[in-house]
Design a protein around this nucleic acid. Structure first.
Lengths: 202, 202
DNA sequence: ATCTATTTTAACCTTTTGGTTAAATCGTTT
DNA sequence: AAACGATTTAACCAAAAGGTTAAAATAGAT
């Protein structure tokens, strides 16, 4: 956020922007250099290859996502609090960086092995989430549901409006950016309410 | 599905396969030619440019999706039937062509104008869906919910497990393809139940 | 048999792009 | 002032990729 940053950071920020918007294939080193306000030679001086730069960017972006999830998961609260917290935090992240999911998904499908590389740090999170859900089921706070399904349901509801923005905006909202923003602002409440209705036992 | 097809169809099928897997940027004309069992010269003989070929493929694929949606929407039934029908049909489509959503989403984000071009045919569908939902709300069959949100919720729940396959499989299912298939098979029931719980008034 | 459209072969062109290199410049530190 | 790292300039290279072309081969129809 500070104007004062060193070249390496400027490069990484520029690369984030370009890679996220264009993907690995669509991104051009020249464009990244321009975006960073430097020239191609210096770009390669810092990061020898496009691939190295991309890997750096990917792990940073994916790290951001994991961090938010971890944050929400490790706060020991009851299920309802966890749900609210998780959904609102997650959507807030995506509101600030709306291209993250498309980027992550696209690159994950392009090179699924990457997941395996970082699997250990995620496994902790997974176990945590699953156990929160299982406990809630045992305590009859929510109806019986497999953790995998509930987790993917929640993620789906949070992520979809961002990856499918042109569809949502174009098809349902008269291609009106204001209406889309309004819609996005309504999302946290909507998703929380939807999921609660779907699983909470009353 | 027939082995006997003319060259143009073979090309289009091959192009579908490659474009869907690699995207516009990642796809190679040579690879499409190989996949179709012909050479590059003949490929360009049928489709002068990569772009023309791509546009053809995109509209075909997107047409498939719209067709399924249209099918489900135009069957005049009550809300519950519509819900079941829509979800099961849609997931069946994705089970057969799992790469469609990622492809459509990626290309839609790359060139959002494309939506505007086909907007009229979709507007009918949209109106139909929205009115089904509004009627259900009026009749107190479901709790009050904005059609945009409900529609996107349903689409999200259907689509996400396919676009995020590596994540679901890797994170939650021990990277086990069998478990993933099992999970996908459970999806229709799960989604139907989830949505019903979330909106149906009992 | 010949005409026609289809298909192949293979060479070729051009543009784009990732990446390199060498020399010069600028700025800071010592 | 000298020295060093950071940065620019600009030319260059090689590979990849989209696209073209011309000539030959193949096959089907009249």
């Amino acid at each position: 956020m500070v104007k004062e940053q060193n070249t390496e950071d400027r490069i990484v920020d520029a690369a984030k922007k370009v890679f996220i918007n264009k993907g690995m294939d669509g991104a051009r080193m020249q464009e990244i250099a321009n975006e960073a306000g430097i020239n191609k030679a210096l770009l390669h001086y810092y990061f020898r290859t496009k691939n190295k730069l991309f890997e750096k960017v990917f792990s940073l972006v994916f790290g951001d996502v994991l961090h938010v999830i971890e944050q929400a998961v490790t706060k020991e609260t009851d299920f309802e609090q966890f749900l609210e917290n998780f959904i609102r935090q997650y959507i807030r992240l995506l509101k600030n960086k709306p291209f993250i999911p498309q980027f992550v998904i696209h690159e994950l499908n392009r090179k699924p092995e990457r997941i395996v590389a970082q699997i250990q740090s995620k496994n902790v999170i997974k176990e945590q989430m699953f156990s929160i859900i299982e406990r809630a089921v045992e305590k009859k706070e929510i109806r019986p549901i497999q953790p995998v399904h509930l987790v993917t349901n929640i993620l789906a509801l949070c992520i979809f409006p961002f990856v499918a923005k042109p569809m949502v905006k174009g098809l349902a909202l008269d291609d009106d950016e204001k209406k889309y923003k309004q819609y996005i602002n309504e999302r946290p409440d909507e998703v929380v309410a939807f999921v609660k209705q779907a699983v909470l036992l009353r």
